[in-house]
Amino acid sequence: MLIPAFLFAMFAGIAIGCSLGVIFHRNPVHCALLLVGVLLSVSGLFILLNASFLAALQVLVYAGAIMVLFLFVLMLLNLKGENPLLTRGAAKGFGILFAIVVFVELLWTVLSPQMEGGMAASPTVPTGFGSPAAIGRVLYTVWLYPFEITSILLLIAVIGAVVLAKRKFG
């Protein structure tokens, strides 16, 4: 079966291309739309990894809610394109150097022989792996308390956002 390999290559290419566009494009609206491209292709990769529920959640929460919030703030602020695009002087060179170090370190970790079953074929998973039923079964038993605490976190975030956006500082 070559179709999964082809789909992986396609989604990976779209994700890398769009994410490069996100960080190097001048217009913030284009950056946001390219970020939607990254999120959708990551959602496609989730489906290839048998995580169908998370793929749906990725589209709904990330590409839907979060990106709409981004675009809404973009329209609200009406930012001009940055000029110059990148940060000044030493920070730029140091930033790229640091990023290269991070990348080499990540690759070294991923490709190290200690990684369990790195190149080996992955095990088969039972039917229903990654389905809403399977997620719910684990989420509402083992992870019940973290799940409830998440609701409090979201409530705090909503209140905090309202307070921050309302008040006049200084």
């Binding site: 994700a15 960080i23 973009l74 602020l77 940055e82 695009l85 990148l86 790229i96 990540l106 690759l107």
Partner: peptide, 18 residues
């Protein structure tokens, strides 16, 4: 790893908070 590194570059190099 590649996507994470691109994100790191974006955080360190761009000037717009958005």
């Amino acid at each position: 790893a590649i996507l994470f590194t691109i994100g790191v570059v974006g955080v360190l190099v761009r000037r717009s908070a958005l």
